[in-house]
Every structure is written in structure tokens, then in C-alpha cells.
Amino acid sequence: MAASSPAPRPITGRFVLITTIAFFAVVIGVNMVMMRLAITTLPGTEVDSAYSASLAYQREIAAARQQNERGWQVQAHVDRRPDGAAAVLLEVRDHAGAPLTGMNILARLERPIDRRADRPIEVSEAGAGSYRGRVDGVAPGQWDLVIEGDADGRRMFLSRNRVLLN
């Protein structure tokens, strides 16, 4: 005589209810964890108000035309050292090649993907038309080097260049 197997348990309403609640609890829990991770790692917006940015657009176009008419030549060189410090050397010349002195140069390294990693660079004049700066805590990878040159309280030069620092 063959051994008989025990009878399977019947599916009851209680079992279906517990299974359904457990399934949705897992789905909602995973969604909440993913939402929390997405919100805490959001780097922020590029522009706080698109309307304000659009109003300033015409002024930026006019400033770019004036910058092109001046014909200034700015050469930038950035080196990242193994300790994470980056050194910036800028050579600023006018349209005739004469060095520009007495400029207030503002520079910063911006991460294209995370605004929180941006690093301002302290730049000072090192000689006739030569400006130097240094910043610590620069991770390797792609950065945007933003250079602004002010004279007499007006922005006279703006440059944004993608650089790869190893």
C-alpha cells in the first residue's frame, strides 16, 4: 500500500489578505526608499527662475558682443596635483597682445553634474597680465572652468570651458 501524502492546505480568505498586504507593503517600502535616495542626492536646479533668466538673456547677448569687440585673449592652464589641489595660471592680453593689469579676476571650478561640488578659486595678479590661483579639494574628472574679469566694477570678460583634471 502506498503512503498517502497529507492533504494540501486550502487557500483561505485570510491567507489571500495577508499575502496581498505583504506584497503591497514591500512595493511601497521599496518606493519610499528609492524616493528618499532620489531626493537626498538631487544636486539642485541650474536656474531658480526660468522667467528671470529669460529677462537677463538680452543683457548677456549684449555683453558677449562687447566682449568680442574688445578682442581680449585669455589663456588658461589648470593642473591638478595628487594631493587634490588645483593650480590655475591665466595670461590676459588685450587685442594688440599687451598684458592687462589691475583686473579683478574671479574664477571657479564647477562640476557639470553636481553644483554642490563647485570650488571658488582665489586668483591674484602675479605679474604683468599673469594671474595665479589655487584651490584645494578638487576631485579628478570633468569640470567647467569659469573665468570672469572685472574692471571698474563691470564684467568685461566671461569664459566657460570644460576641462578634464586627472
Rank of each mutant, 00 (worst) to 15 (best):
R132I: 03
L109I: 01
R111L: 01
R154P: 02
N104H: 15
A98H: 11
I147E: 03
A85G: 08
A126C: 06
I113Q: 15
V135T: 13
W143A: 04
A107G: 02
D144G: 00
L89M: 14
R115T: 13
D94L: 02
G71S: 08
M156L: 15
V135I: 10
R134F: 06
A107I: 04
L145F: 00
E148L: 05
M103I: 15
R80M: 04
E122D: 15
E69K: 09
R80F: 01
R108T: 01
A126V: 06
H77T: 08
T101H: 04
E122F: 13
H77A: 14
R132P: 04
G149E: 03
Q75N: 14
R93F: 11
L158Y: 15
V146C: 06
L158I: 06
A98L: 13
F157V: 03
D152M: 08
R93S: 07
A76S: 14
G153H: 03
R115S: 13
R111E: 02
F157H: 11
D118P: 13
D144R: 12
R132F: 07
Q67R: 07
Q75V: 12
E125P: 07
V138I: 12
G102Y: 13
Q73H: 14
D150T: 03
Y131F: 12
A98M: 11
E110Q: 05
G127I: 12
F157P: 00
E91M: 12
P99N: 10
